[in-house]
Design a protein around this nucleic acid. Structure first.
Lengths: 115, 115
DNA sequence: GAGATACGCAACCTCGAGGTTGCGGGATGC
DNA sequence: GCATCCCGCAACCTCGAGGTTGCGTATCTC
């Protein structure tokens, strides 16, 4: 049993794992929730209402940016961050595929029981 | 700006972050892919075809188990792991809500442009 | 021009995730 | 009964994630 899959599958899985990991932190999930509301926000704005330092928030934003969930636009002295939905959509599709595969397993089991 | 949300929201976010984090690893994603295929597998089986130690795989499985993505059933001298779809379904719903919210933002922006 | 704002960079610290090795102890096969 | 297989527990190691502090530098305001 190789359990590695094709090269494309491996690359995709690496991508997905990176996005999952980026979302696997309470602070970053909170940031995503805020930014998915629509309005771009500066680092200082995102730091307000948090007990963490601006630097910590900055690091989290860079992680989200590396995963493609967010991108920054420098505007004057402040850099505003905006939400980017594509990676999350891919994750949703991935989870949908897993769920569909599982449902197929269940239905196959069901027919085996019935016959 | 508080950006904390209600207590329920915070608790849910903590849960979601844990599941996201559990999936944020290539090895564990691979294990999930294998186990979502339907057939329960022993640790030794899951270790085969990997360059890692059985102990490493065991630790990953425990992480998945803590997140509720998987559960183990001891059977004789081997413990078989089975897939559990519920947490992934919740993540899918969560991503769906974020996506829907974002689409709403875009449509609101569109009407603003059109008027 | 002076002061306040918003940010980036770099050094530093801590701690836990990820991984290995070694060992012991139940099941199993023969 | 004995070798073998499958597993759990514990100790150990390494390294990077998460966080802070300090400092320098544009930028805005007045």
């Amino acid at each position: 049993m190789s359990r590695g899959g094709s090269d494309r599958g491996v690359a995709k899985r690496r991508q997905h794992a990176a996005v999952f990991a980026a979302l696997g932190d309470e602070t970053r999930l909170s940031l995503v929730t805020t930014l998915s509301g629509g309005e771009p926000r500066s680092i200082a704005q995102l730091t307000g209402g948090s007990r963490m330092t601006r630097q910590a928030i900055t690091k989290h934003l860079r992680v989200l940016e590396s995963a493609g969930i967010v991108h920054s636009v420098r505007s004057g002295r402040e850099s505003r961050f905006e939400f980017d939905p594509q990676p999350l959509n891919e994750l949703q599709e991935y989870l949908g595929r897993v769920s569909a595969q599982w449902d197929q397993v269940l239905s196959r089991l069901q027919t085996l029981v019935e016959r």
